[in-house]
Design a protein around this nucleic acid. Structure first.
Length: 497
RNA sequence: GGUCCUUUGGCCGAGUGGCUAGGCAAAGCUCUGCAAAAGCUUCUACAGCGGUUCGAAUCCGCUAGGGACCUCCA
């Protein structure tokens, strides 16, 4: 069996994954800022790391998966007006800040459920960990790597860089950072431009404020992840994930803070997913090109010709390697939808298929081909989570499954062992690891009974060449959104659109 | 301006130096009361130029396009 290799952003190469504590994995993923609705771009990391999570569990690890909720306002634009995102939005929507946070948290959870992601083991909120954050800031000040100015506290990047490697993760050269020519207002409190806030003094009009040793205010953005990751995963943990756009300054700063507090590099493997683009451009608030998840699911967006099922989105995302950009378009999603349907239909056929041995039908070439394709699943996944390749193999097998169903080739063209491996592998990989699930409402037993009745009637009508009746059944079902298909050998199958 | 990434067939996308990824679309055929689905077949591409090599989509250089980060950002 091959070993799991992951691409570590820190070393910029694939490394064999070895957890700190054998049998256990600690994983932290940067969660959403719940000051607004999640969009398609946000879906990517959560689906990507859901598969990572599922795969680690499949490998037998006990995983503690921590994903935070950022519900404390950090700066909209550091230095400019020190605006509190959440307070600002709350005013607009005339909600209590916590009411707003709750609303978007609920919406986020709902979307994650739609995507069939497994909830994290711990989902800590920033507001619930103000004490821990203040403690951490105190430690950094005591260590001499932070200073107070007008009730705000800043991290001393220059000093840190003199003793540690600041900028390694994001490939930044510290001198360039220190000498940046960019003019930002309100920076006079900082000793240096590269310094970042740990605590921010907040004016009374800010609704979300907390008492602290320095001034009433709120924590800097980076400190929450350092504090919560340390609390729940320890000074050093295995995996830290997030979007590539968080590499700098967020994760770079996290490393600096945690290293000073805990005297050890916080993370063994940094894993970053690439962005979803739209017309080649990153989907993001700043570009005003986002498609919200609710819009995606309802089809209510100028760029969408129809609604797309969450499973289509999940499939679409997993069909690309997580470190490549993924370009969104209506057509690309339509293609994904059709592909997923084909794959899932084949899987459902496979599930109810049983092995019938027939002498002399074994096709050894096919048998070993199928076995090889199945065994490669793990190899591909171990190679930095190559879900796209796993799926490509599945599609290669789909043809064979369909042929068996159509009886073009006998089931015993492959050996019993291979057939059983095929059934179990598809279940494990499609459902448990890739996390795909049925996207139809066809699961109700009552509905299945009704459908069986209609199918029986239609079969009788067809036998009697009463095509008026048989067509009526099929056509009216079509109008209801249920497709009835005649199979080879007189059987019928149905699916809900 | 700095740092880094990227450029694959009609579209989306995988690609670890030698072996047709895969999906969608398209065309033809088979099956079929009709339809739908399915199966089979066809479609061999790697931005351009140069280099390394027996051999390059894959390594190196240059040129051109696109993008990300440097500021909130998944």
């Amino acid at each position: 069996m091959s070993q799991l290799k992951v691409y570590n952003s820190f070393s910029r190469q694939k490394e064999v994954f070895k957890s700190i504590t054998p049998g256990h994995v600690g994983m932290y993923v940067c969660g959403p800022t719940v000051s607004g609705e999640s969009h398609l771009g946000h879906a990517r990391p959560y689906i990507t790391f859901d598969v990572v999570h599922r795969y680690l569990k499949h490998l037998g690890y006990k995983v503690r998966y921590v994903r935070n909720i950022t519900d404390a306002g950090h700066f909209e634009e550091e230095g400019r007006e020190a605006e509190d995102k959440i307070s600002k939005k709350a005013l607009l929507e005339k909600l209590e800040p916590m009411e707003l946070v709750q609303k978007y948290t609920n919406l986020f959870h709902w979307a994650m459920e739609q995507f069939n992601t497994i909830p994290p083991s711990i989902e800590p909120t920033a507001t619930g960990h103000i004490v821990e954050q203040i403690e951490m800031i105190k430690q950094i000040i005591e260590a001499g790597y932070a200073y107070e100015a007008n009730g705000s506290v800043y991290f001393d990047v220059k000093k840190y860089a003199a003793n540690y490697d600041y900028g390694k993760l994001s490939g930044r050269v510290i001198d360039d950072l220190l000498e940046t020519t960019r003019e930002l207002e309100g920076q006079e409190e900082k000793k240096d431009r590269a310094d970042f806030a740990l605590w921010k003094n907040a004016a009374p009009e800010h609704i979300m404020r907390w008492q602290s040793p320095w001034a009433v205010g709120y924590p800097g953005w980076h400190i929450e992840c350092s504090a919560m990751a340390t609390k729940y995963l320890g000074a050093q943990f295995d995996i830290h994930g997030g979007g590539m756009d968080l590499l700098f300054p967020h994760h770079e700063s996290e490393i600096a803070q945690s290293t000073i507090c805990n005297h050890i590099a916080p993370v063994r493997y940094w894993i970053h997913n690439n962005m979803i683009t739209i017309n080649g451009r990153k989907m993001g608030k700043s570009y005003n090109n986002v498609i919200k998840l609710t819009e995606l699911f309802s089809g209510d967006h100028p760029l969408l010709e129809k609604a797309f099922h969450p499973m289509t989105t999940r499939f679409f995302i997993l069909q690309t390697h997580y470190r490549s950009t993924l370009d969104f378009s209506n057509d690309a999603l339509v293609a994904a939808e059709k592909g997923l349907k084909r794959l899932w239909d084949a899987y459902e056929k496979l599930r109810v298929m049983s092995y019938e041995f027939r002498e002399g039908t074994l096709d050894e070439e096919l048998d070993s081909k199928i076995a090889k394709l199945l065994n490669e699943f793990e190899e591909f996944m171990n190679d930095d989570f190559s879900t796209a390749k796993v799926m490509a193999n599945m599609f290669e097998i789909v043809s064979t499954i369909n042929s068996m169903k159509d009886k073009t080739i006998p089931v015993s063209a492959i050996s019993k062992e291979t057939f059983e491996l095929l059934q179990s592998s598809f279940k494990t990989w499609l459902e448990d690891i890739l996390g795909l699930t049925s996207f139809s409402e066809a699961d109700s037993t009552k509905l299945q009974g009704v459908m069986q009745l209609l199918i029986d009637i239609r079969k009788e009508a067809k036998t009697k060449k009463d095509f008026a009746t048989s067509d009526k059944i099929r056509n009216q079902l079509t109008e209801l959104g249920i497709t009835l298909k005649d199979e080879k050998g007189g059987d019928m199958s149905w699916s809900i659109e």
